[in-house]
Structures are given as structure tokens and as C-alpha cells.
Amino acid sequence: MQRSDLYGVMGEFGTPEELLQAVKKIRQAGYRRLDAYAPFPIEGLSDALGLKRNLVPAITLLGGLAGGIGGFGLQYWAAAITYPLNIGGRPLNSWPAFIPVTFELTILGASFAAVFGMLALNRLPHPHHPVFNVARFTHASSDRFFVCIEANDPNFHVEKCARLLQEVHAHHITEVSNE
């Protein structure tokens, strides 16, 4: 039986190399619901966690397309349809003159999509999270590295996970409470 107030079991490491080793071993042991916490992006951590390509680039592309098409459409609609001005018989759809604004709105749409897409996929803002209940977790934003095996993993068992973390040389192994 699992306690419902348990989020997972957490262990602490001193260097990025130890963290990478630990993550690899924990995954080899069959656990899939785990996360690593680090004060800076670590090369190889995404691979160790088994993360594949993410959706941010696709969302950015869509945002850019929306910005570009919307931007050109806006200008076409304003200059050729709803507010046509005949200036010396020049064509209303003067597309070369619409390029700068189309370009800027493409960049704007793509940037908005990249930032807000990234935040949405990461479920941020998320000010309260069980891992913050661990007192030493404040070091995750300065000089320490953490691994948390989460309780919703099908193989999860408190003692087994704690032992596994001990085997991969984690310090300060603690249970992470949900409250």
C-alpha cells in the first residue's frame, strides 16, 4: 500500500557527473517516473532521463507562420480591401512594401510561441510543488543536484527506492511529502 501523502523519495548529489550516473542507474533499475533537479542545464541529462525531442520548436514554427500570414493578411486587408488609396494608379497590393511588417510580426509570433509554449509545456507558473517541502532543496538553485523517484511509478516502494539511492551514493535521502 502506498501512502497518499507521499510524492516520492529524493537523494542529493554534489556534482553533475554523480547526478548523471545516478539517473542512468535508476532508469536501468526500471524506474520511469523520476526527475532530476539541477542549478544549471547539464549536458547529457536529457538523454539520461530518456527525454526525446520536445514540442517547443514545432509550436514556435506555428507561431511564426501565424504571425507572418496574419501580418501580411492584415496589411493586405487594410491597404487593398477596407481602406484602398489610389496613389498615382499604383497597385493596391504593393507586396514589397509589406515585407518589413510581415517579417517583424513573424518574429513576434514565433517568439511569443517559443516563450509561452515553453512555459505551458513546463506547467509554469507553478509556485507550490512538493519538492519544495524538502528543506535542503533550496540548494537546487545554487550548488546541489537532486534526483526524485516519484511515488506514482508502478515499481515504487519507499525502502527499495531509498536503498537504490544509497547504492548510487546519494546524500541526505529523504521522503518528499505532498503536503
Partner: peptide, 8 residues
């Protein structure tokens, strides 16, 4: 925004 340095 509640950043926790998660690998994901």
C-alpha cells in the same frame, strides 16, 4: 514562476 530546475 515556481522554477525548480527540473531536468524536464
Amino acid at each position: 514562476l515556481g522554477w525548480r530546475g527540473s531536468g524536464r
